[in-house]
Design a binder for these strands. Structure first.
Lengths: 200, 200
DNA sequence: GATTGAAGATGACACCTGTCATGCGTGCGG
DNA sequence: CCGCACGCATGACAGGTGTCATCTTCAATC
C-alpha cells in the first residue's frame, strides 16, 4: 500500500486528484494540503512514500518543499505536477532532488502509474522535457531577479531603490545587467523573457 | 439523467473532473474537449443539458462558446469554471448569458450539485462574487486596451506606433489616458492593474 | 449649414530609463 | 601582503516616457 500526500492550491483539482487516486487499490491518501507549509507538516507527521505537489503555492513552493524534505532526511519522494514546461523549473526541480516531474496536461490515467514508479524508486519525467532541462542556464543573479520582479510590478527605479535600501543608480545598473544578459530592449521585455523561461 | 459536456484545456483536470462527475448516478458525460472549437462541435452534436467550461482555452474562449451557443438557439446551459475571480470576467460571462460561474478553488463536492441546479434552470454564482460583478465598469476604450497589451509585451512607443499605423505621440496619448483612468504611475503598472481586473 | 465631439497629431517640458565610464570598499586566493 | 574580482555607488548623456495645451479632420447631430 503506497501512502500519498497531495499538495495543490486549487481546491477543485486537489479534490479531484485525491478522489481519483483513492480509487486505486494500492494507493492510500494520507492527507491533502492547500499550501506548502501544511504539506510539510503532513509529510513530517505521516512520512508518506510519495508527496504529489504543485510548484506554485502560497507560502512554500513545491520546490522548496522538496528541498526541505531532503534536508530533513526523510525517505518521502517528491512528484512535481505543474502547469509550466519552463526549462528553468525542471532544472531547479532536479537540483532540489525531486523524483518526478509531470505536466498538468498529462492524462490523469498516467498519474497512478507515475506514483507507483516513484514509490518503487524510479525517476519519472514528462516526455520531451528531459533534454530541454539543461538547455539554457539561468544567467540572472539573485539581486537581478529580485529587482526585476519589482520592476515588473510597475515600480520605478526610485521606488525599488527605497524598497531594497539601494541607490537609484544601482538599481538601474542591476536592471541594465539583467536587460543585457537577456538580450532585451528594456526592463519590461526582460521581465517577460525571464518569466517565460522560468527564471523569475 | 443529465447529459454533460466538459471543456477544459488542462488534460489532468479535464480527466479528473470527468471521472469524478461520471461517478454521480444522475450525470452522464456526453464528451470532453480540450478547446472551445471542439466543445462547440460536441455541444451541437450531442445537445447536452449542461456544458461545463473553462474560460481561457486555445481557439475559442469559454465566454465565446457560451455566446455562440446562445446564438445557435440551443437549450444547453453554460457553467463556467475558472481560476480567476476578476470582476470583469464575471460581468462578461453574465453578458454572454451563462447560467453559472464557479472558481477552481470551489470544493469538487459542490460541483455535481451545481451541475444539477443549472440543469434545473437555476443560476449558480460563486459566493461573494455576485455583488462584486458590477462594482467597477471597464473604463478602457478598445484602442487603449490594444495599445496597453503591446506595451505590456515590452514594445516602446515607436514600435507600437509602427505596428498600429499611428504616430508616436498618439500612442503616448492613449497610454496616458489608460494610465490616468487606472490611477497608475506608468504603463507597466497600468497593464498590471488592468489585467488583475480582467480588462485586458 | 453650424455645432459638437471623437480620433488622431504635434510640440514642448520635466522626468525616467538605458548605457557606460569610473570610483570605492571588502573579501579572497596567490 | 598585493592584486583583483565583486558589490555598490556616482555622474553624465542620449533617448524614452508622462503630461498637457493645442490643432486638424471628419462624422454625427441639431
Amino acid at each position: 500500500m503506497i501512502r500519498l500526500v497531495i499538495a495543490e492550491d486549487q481546491t477543485m483539482l486537489r479534490d479531484a486528484l485525491a478522489t481519483l487516486l483513492s480509487l486505486e487499490n494500492d494507493i492510500e491518501i494520507a492527507g491533502s494540503a492547500a499550501n506548502g507549509r501544511e504539506a510539510l507538516d503532513l509529510v513530517r507527521h505521516h512520512k508518506p512514500h510519495v508527496v504529489l505537489t504543485d510548484i506554485e503555492m502560497p507560502g512554500l513552493t513545491g520546490l522548496e518543499l522538496a528541498a526541505q524534505i531532503k534536508r530533513d532526511g526523510l525517505e518521502t519522494r517528491t512528484l512535481i505536477v505543474t502547469m509550466f514546461d519552463r526549462p528553468g523549473y525542471l532544472r531547479r526541480a532536479l537540483e532540489a532532488g525531486v523524483s518526478g516531474y509531470l505536466l498538468k496536461d498529462t492524462p490523469s490515467t498516467e498519474l497512478a502509474d507515475a506514483v507507483r514508479r516513484i514509490a518503487a524508486g524510479e525517476r519519472v519525467l514528462a516526455p520531451g522535457l528531459a533534454e530541454q532541462a539543461w538547455s539554457a542556464e539561468d544567467p540572472l543573479s539573485d539581486t537581478e531577479r529580485r529587482l526585476l520582479r519589482l520592476a515588473e510590478a510597475g515600480m520605478d527605479s526610485q521606488a525599488i531603490a527605497d524598497a531594497e535600501g539601494l541607490a537609484r543608480g544601482t538599481v538601474r545598473n542591476y536592471l541594465h545587467n539583467a536587460i543585457s544578459k537577456l538580450g532585451a530592449g528594456n526592463r519590461i521585455e526582460a521581465a517577460r523573457l525571464a518569466r517565460e523561461r522560468g527564471w523569475l
